[in-house]
Amino acid sequence: MDTPIVPEAVAEASIAVPLRPPGLWRQGWYRFRRNRGGMLGLGLVALVVLVALLCPFVAPFAPNDQSAMLRGAARKAPDWVHLLGTDRNGYDVLTRVLYGASTALAVGLGAMAVASVIGVIIGGIAGYAGGLTDELLMRFAEFFMVIPVFVVILAVVRLFGIVVVGTWLESIPNLNLMTIIVLLGCFEWPPIARMARAEFLRLKHAEFVEAAICIGTKKRDILLRHILPNALPSLIVLVALGIGGAILAETMVSFLGFGDPKAVSWGQQLHFNYEALKVAPWAVLSPGAAIFVTVLGFNLLADGLTDAFNPRLRR
């Protein structure tokens, strides 16, 4: 009598529950792991996130500590006390660079969160509803794309700074920074909306959506449980790219002297120190390198995600 190789119970189970093919996300992760650039980006982003989370514990000084100025050690070259030196303000450069990571992430993630919500809602409605609604919403998106974002940010930050004086809004910490975040979000949504529209347009005719409609699934569930999750991979690529862009935008606003005076920002470090580039280069090169690493990280990550979720684009 032959002895079965596979125990009966197991064999039955394998027949009853066939092995599920890996899902969209898992497939993406398999492809992403093979992308060296993407993994490097992920590593850099993880490093920035880690720095942002740990900066209160690892920074050698308080972010607003100007004591170096008071003891005559501003613009001091790196040494054992100030590993990256001090800047013109008397701040410890390393401390400001570390704290700047949380500001950069807050700006990048905050702005893209706002942009994503607006973009997905508008793009989703446009793509799913189609017709005149689609036309109107897409023209609306194009209108936002031609507005010069920087001019608007500079003007609104200035105006807002005047309007909030003496109101409860003034008590909100880092109000200027929050204004910049919201404004960046309000002007970065059109690309997301266009992508969301395209995805919703494609997916609403997919078989699984039609099947869901046939069994009487509610429209809300179709949108949120069937279409949106399948559109997300493409949108995440855009969001990751946008984070780097938003960080750069805030840096530019701060570099021009319109940032939040109370926020610890790499752009503001550059603003205060760029004229001393030849005298105290460490005060400029350090935040410059931090910006480079962060933006590069998010861009490589976005590149990797593109390869992972839209492999056909690379072929």
Partner: peptide
């Protein structure tokens, strides 16, 4: 109010505020 046309003044203005 710290005039934004002179970086050095912005620095001592920030210091003064602190």
């Amino acid at each position: 109010m710290i005039p934004n046309n002179q970086p050095a003044r912005m620095i001592w203005g920030t210091l003064a505020a602190q």
